[in-house]
């Protein structure tokens, strides 16, 4: 009997330890919870789900989202996502939020199928679903908050490269390093890039190579390209992994400035390359504004001011935003150069 008493004491110890951990990490949140219950009548609960929690890209989106929630006043914003980027965990979160009958769930699906299934189930329970940053099947959500259309991005990439190469008629060979050959976003951008290259007849596209979202492979592929095409003038790295990989390869080859690299990535990843001249411009959108617009759209949807078929959305400090079909467009490409890149920290 004596021995079991000791074990029970230890059991209580474990419980206490768990309680303390929970309280320590989530103390602030649980206090917030209590406040929610009092004003539950008017509150709109919006869940913002990133592809992966903890990535600087999404953390800065969340900052903008919080700003919008504060401005609106009646919004309780929940920002959570899988820390390991697992689509299954993300789907589990959507399931739980739907059971809790939140008002809106805004999803950046890291797997459109796995998340799509959970999103459809949530819609059947009467929860508003929108996507942001990345899309799922149209019947899984009501709107998508689109940071930039494929056309915006494709054109901006080519125009930026043309400007960086310079001259009235920019001239030279260019190559694209993409994510995977099947990546939907990237293929859409490449289509529009090819279209835009028509405007610059002396820029010739000599290769499109996959990097399989592996920075080392991007590095290797770029080295091969530099060897195979000695007259190469520009490289597009069109994923956040391909871009730094390509820049590093050009830098190590000692041809910084002679071969220009541009593409899509977060400013922090590219700052060093921008300052040493390997990269003149980094193309992206304002992530804070993306989060801000998402919460604005979600709140409007929950309160009934945004309905299917609308052509405009009042987006607070961003002004009026255009809606094309079911796509709410942020429509602001941001080009980072050595003059402004240090103003952004993500």
């Amino acid at each position: 009997m004596k021995s079991s008493a000791g074990v029970w004491c230890a059991a209580l110890g474990v419980i206490a330890a768990v309680a303390i951990t929970a309280a320590a990490v989530a103390g602030g949140v649980s206090g917030h919870e209590g406040a929610r219950a009092e004003t539950a009548a008017k509150k709109i609960t919006i869940c913002l789900l990133p592809k992966k929690k903890g990535l600087p890209y999404f953390t800065t989106c969340a900052k903008g989202a919080e700003e919008a929630a504060k401005e609106l006043g009646n919004v309780e914003l929940i920002y959570d996502g899988p820390t390991d980027g697992s689509p299954e965990k993300a789907a589990g979160m959507v399931d739980r939020w739907a059971l809790q009958k939140v008002d809106v769930i805004a999803v950046s699906p890291n797997d459109p199928e796995v998340l799509g299934q959970a999103m459809k189930k949530a819609r059947q329970k009467g929860v508003h679903i929108i996507t942001w940053d990345a899309d799922a099947a149209p019947d899984a959500r009501e709107f998508m908050v689109n940071q930039a259309t494929g056309r915006d991005i494709g054109y901006a990439l080519v125009d930026t490269m043309a400007k960086d190469i310079g001259g009235a008629e920019p001239e030279g060979e260019v190559a694209i390093i993409t994510a995977t050959l099947t990546a939907a976003n990237q293929n859409e951008w490449i289509k529009h890039m090819k279209e835009r290259l028509g405007k610059y007849p002396k820029l010739t596209l000599v290769a499109v190579k996959p990097s399989n979202e592996d920075q080392r492979l991007a590095f290797q592929v770029t080295q091969d390209l530099l060897k195979a095409h000695p007259k190469l003038k520009g490289i597009f790295g069109i994923s956040s992994v391909a871009f730094p990989g390509a820049a590093e390869a050009v830098k190590q080859s000692g041809r910084s400035g002679a071969v220009l690299v541009t593409g899509l990535a977060t400013p922090n990843d590219m700052k060093a390359y921008v300052h040493d001249g390997t990269v003149r411009s980094v193309v992206l959108w304002n992530t804070g504004d993306l989060g801000y617009l998402t919460v604005r759209a979600a709140a409007a949807l929950a309160s009934g001011t945004l309905k299917a078929g609308d052509h405009e959305l009042d987006a607070g400090r961003l002004g009026t935003k255009k809606i094309e079909g079911d796509q709410i467009l942020l429509g602001q490409i941001l080009v980072f150069t050595k003059d402004n890149i240090d103003d952004f920290d993500f």
Partner: peptide, 13 residues
């Protein structure tokens, strides 16, 4: 996940 809505907390607990 339901109450605290913090994925990182799950791992700690």
């Amino acid at each position: 996940g339901w109450h605290w809505r913090r994925d990182e907390l799950i791992l700690i607990v």
